[in-house]
């Protein structure tokens, strides 16, 4: 694993080009003047660079939407992890029938498309008087991230050898202590994966914000992108500029947190 792997290196370079193409299109289109964006062909370098689209995007209140999205994303991540990790711990260590049924129910949750249940969810949220609040987005998004979180975390937790549990139990540790001292640190790779996925679900999700919020002050970024979609056509360069601006915070967060992420991912058993 430590030697240079040439075929893999070439393959990953190819994949990099594949990944880069649409991103190139997005960035280049965002720099085109709005009226000429299709004429030269999508891939050509723009004849004139224009930051008008970015200026328009910012003018349309993007910063407010970014703040709302940030709150929703962080809250969703926290709620998902806080619920999923204890549940995964229980599933991995408790073999009773009730718990196994619980796992099957969560697996059933994987199969539920959000659109199928959006109307009942709307009715429930309205009855709970949570309509048009960030909580209205956080609760269902976290609930729908739970099945995935539990699948990934059980996968991650099961590889903790039983001896480690048993030795702590023999030392007199209760479940709470085992959770804090053993499970929490060792599940870090899984926690990070789940956190990223739940956070991105919340950042890019559009269905729950659409149906469960309304006012401009509760609006999140994906809905803010609408300002570029008009009744008879989309302002594509403007939209692309808004997309770049809205991906930047997550990108910066990732670049800054990458080292911590890598350290977390490398925290296995380190033998």
């Amino acid at each position: 694993m430590n030697r240079r792997n040439v075929p893999a290196g070439i393959a990953s370079a190819v994949w990099l080009i594949v990944v880069a193409f649409p991103i190139y299109v997005i960035v280049v289109t965002s720099l085109r003047p709005a009226d000429a964006y299709l004429s030269g062909g999508v891939l050509s370098l723009p004849r004139s660079l224009s930051l008008d689209n970015y200026e328009r995007a910012l003018r349309l209140g993007l910063s407010g939407f970014l703040a709302n999205s940030a709150v929703v994303a962080v809250a969703t991540m926290a709620l998902t992890l806080a619920c999923a990790l204890p549940a995964a711990y229980c599933i991995v260590r408790n073999r009773s029938r009730l718990v196994r049924t619980g796992l099957s129910l969560f697996l059933l949750g994987l199969a539920i498309p959000a659109q199928a249940v959006i109307v009942p969810v709307y009715l429930i949220i309205t009855r709970m008087h949570l309509y048009d609040s960030p909580t209205a987005i956080v609760l269902p998004t976290a609930a729908f991230s739970l099945p995935l979180a539990i699948v990934v975390l059980t996968s991650s937790l099961r590889d903790i050898p039983t001896e480690l549990y048993e030795s702590m139990q023999l030392d007199g540790a209760g479940n709470g202590l085992i959770f804090r001292r053993l499970v929490l640190p060792l599940s870090r790779p899984g926690l990070i994966t789940v956190g990223i996925v739940a956070g991105l679900n919340a950042w890019n999700g559009i269905l729950f914000p659409l149906v469960l919020t309304q006012s401009a002050r509760a609006r999140v970024v994906p809905l803010g992108l609408w300002n570029f979609q008009n009744e008879h056509g989309t302002d594509v360069p403007g939209l692309m500029a808004a997309v770049v601006l809205s991906a930047l915070p997550m990108l910066l967060l990732y670049l800054v947190g990458r080292r911590y992420l890598l350290r977390g991912l490398a925290a296995g058993f380190g033998r």
């Binding site: 999923a84 204890p86 408790n94 609760l139 479940n175």
Partner: peptide
Amino acid sequence: PPGVGWLVPAGVLFAVFGLLPI
């Protein structure tokens, strides 16, 4: 082993927004 109680937070959230809607 950890009791069913550990499942409760996830269970309640999922029941209200996942199972009940279904």
